[in-house]
Every structure is written in structure tokens, then in C-alpha cells.
């Protein structure tokens, strides 16, 4: 068997030359809950993404484009968190270095895709009433992918996730303020269901990142926060499902509904 030097072990395992154990906060129940949570989130995100696929393909609407991006990239982010768990479960002395390397890759992917997801959510808000088409959409997408990598990579290398949280918080707050000013000028509505949902989704993701970064909140808070976060995703799914219900009566006051009758 290969001899592993203590300095090769991750810091939380100290100098013990034994097979590493889960840290105390990662007991069986919380790991199971977290796995169920991520599986649920992945399912919800994929269902929402594929449910809107046909309409997006027909319309190519830019707001819908970034709205769908949020779900697919959040699903990817959650999937890499699950893979990260799998590396913990498959820990053995023989593959310790591989496992640590794989875990780092997974954490990078989780933060990278999560960052893309939340910037996409912000773009879906900014793209309201503005068509981002053709070349400008390609440029926006390229900036989205490369910008997220530029933000996440150095932060992960330096292990300063708090900076990532701060950058995203400032960006998201700026987008929310722009949106509020724009909407207030047009129809005086400040608090809407979607703004609250977007804000909560963002807060829960930031909290999720800080749990990974072992930051401010105690680990016991994770379970209730997961529960609320799952309820938000479920509510989005139910709202979408309501629209797709075959017996749904469409509101007839839309300008085009009336127009269709006239034409």
C-alpha cells in the first residue's frame, strides 16, 4: 500500500495517518438530507428547463433564454455538489490525492455554474422589454461564461469564497436597484412575487456557499434553509405547471387575444 504523508492529508484531518473520517458536522442524517435536497433541486430545475424548451425554441425570447439558463446551470451546480459528496464517500487511502483533486474540481464547477446561474437570473431581469438577439446575445453569453470563470477561479485558488459572495451580492443588488427604479417609474410596483423569489433564491445560494466555505452560520441552520429553498423551487414549478394545465382558461383581456378576434 502506498504510504501517505501527513502533509498530503486535508487540513481538517490533522496529522492522523488513518483513513479520514467525516468531519463531525457531516453526520449520516445531514449528508442524506443534503443529497435528497440536491436531487430534488436537480429534478425541479430540469423539469422547468425542459418544460419551457418548446416555447423557447419557437420564440427565442431573450428573457426566457436567461430564465432557462438559471435552471440548467443551477442543476449543474447542484449535480457537481452531489459528485463532490460521492468523492467523500469513495475516500480511501489509495485514492486520497485523486479524491482531493476531484473534490476541488467539483467545488470549482459548483461555484462556476452557480455563478453563471445567478448572473443569468439577473440578466433575465435586465432583459425584460429588451431583445438581446443575434450577435449581442452571443457576446452576452461569452461574457457570462468567461466573466464567471474569471471571478470564480482566482477566488477558489485563494480559498476566499467570501469575496465571491460579496461580488455577487453587489452585482445582484445593483441589478435589483436598476429594476426597481425602472419599474417604479413605469407602474409604481416595488414588491412583486418574482422579486421576492429572486432575492430569496440568491440569499439561499449565498448561504449555501458560505456553508461550504465554513463561514458565518452554524451547520444546524442548513436543514431549515434547505427546506425553504426547496419550497421556493417547488413553488416555481407549480406556477409553471399551472400555466401548462390543459384546462387552463386564458385571460382574454390580452391585446392580442382581442386582436385575433378582430382580424
Amino acid at each position: 500500500m502506498e504510504r501517505i504523508h501527513p502533509e498530503d492529508l486535508p487540513p481538517q484531518f490533522g496529522d492522523h495517518p488513518y483513513p479520514p473520517q467525516f468531519p463531525p458536522m457531516l453526520d449520516d442524517l445531514s449528508v442524506l438530507c443534503e443529497i435528497i435536497y440536491y436531487l430534488f433541486i436537480i429534478c425541479m430545475c430540469l423539469v422547468i428547463y425542459f418544460k419551457t424548451k418548446e416555447i423557447y425554441e419557437l420564440t427565442g425570447h431573450s428573457g426566457l433564454h436567461y430564465f432557462r439558463y438559471f435552471f440548467i446551470f443551477f442543476a449543474l451546480s447542484s449535480a457537481f455538489r452531489l459528485v463532490s459528496f460521492a468523492t467523500l464517500f469513495n475516500f480511501s487511502l489509495k485514492t486520497l490525492n485523486d479524491a482531493i483533486f476531484l473534490d476541488k474540481i467539483c467545488i470549482f464547477a459548483m461555484l462556476y455554474f452557480g455563478t453563471i446561474a445567478f448572473i443569468s437570473l439577473a440578466l433575465s431581469v435586465l432583459a425584460r422589454n429588451h431583445d438581446i438577439d443575434g450577435r449581442s446575445r452571443l457576446i452576452a453569453d461569452a461574457v457570462l461564461y468567461s466573466g464567471s470563470a474569471i471571478i470564480v477561479l482566482p477566488i477558489l485558488v485563494m480559498r476566499m469564497e467570501i469575496i465571491l459572495m460579496a461580488i455577487l451580492a453587489v452585482f445582484f443588488a445593483a441589478v435589483m436597484i436598476c429594476d426597481l427604479i425602472r419599474e417604479y417609474r413605469s407602474n409604481n410596483r416595488i414588491i412583486t412575487r418574482n422579486r421576492i423569489t429572486n432575492l430569496l433564491l440568491f440569499i439561499f445560494w449565498i448561504l449555501n456557499v458560505q456553508f461550504y466555505a465554513k463561514g458565518l452560520l452554524p451547520r444546524e441552520w442548513f436543514l431549515p434553509l434547505m427546506l425553504v429553498s426547496a419550497i421556493i423551487f417547488l413553488s416555481i414549478f407549480l406556477r409553471l405547471n399551472k400555466i401548462y394545465r390543459p384546462d387552463r382558461k386564458y385571460r382574454s383581456e390580452t391585446a392580442n387575444g382581442a386582436k385575433e378576434e378582430r382580424l
Binding site: 416555447i55 419557437l58 428573457g63 431581469v125 425584460r128 412583486t192 401548462y244 390580452t254 392580442n256 387575444g257
Partner: peptide, 22 residues
């Protein structure tokens, strides 16, 4: 045929935009 599908899905599309403020 794709145009007919667009007409068919248009109201659902508008509902999605309205529901999610897109």
C-alpha cells in the same frame, strides 16, 4: 407547421412572461 405551433403556444408563452415578469 411551425407557424401553426407558434400560434398554438403563443398564449402559453405570454402567460409565462406575465407570470415570471420576463
Amino acid at each position: 407547421e411551425k407557424g401553426l405551433r407558434y400560434i398554438d403556444k403563443y398564449k402559453t408563452f405570454m402567460e409565462i412572461l406575465r407570470e415570471f415578469d420576463l
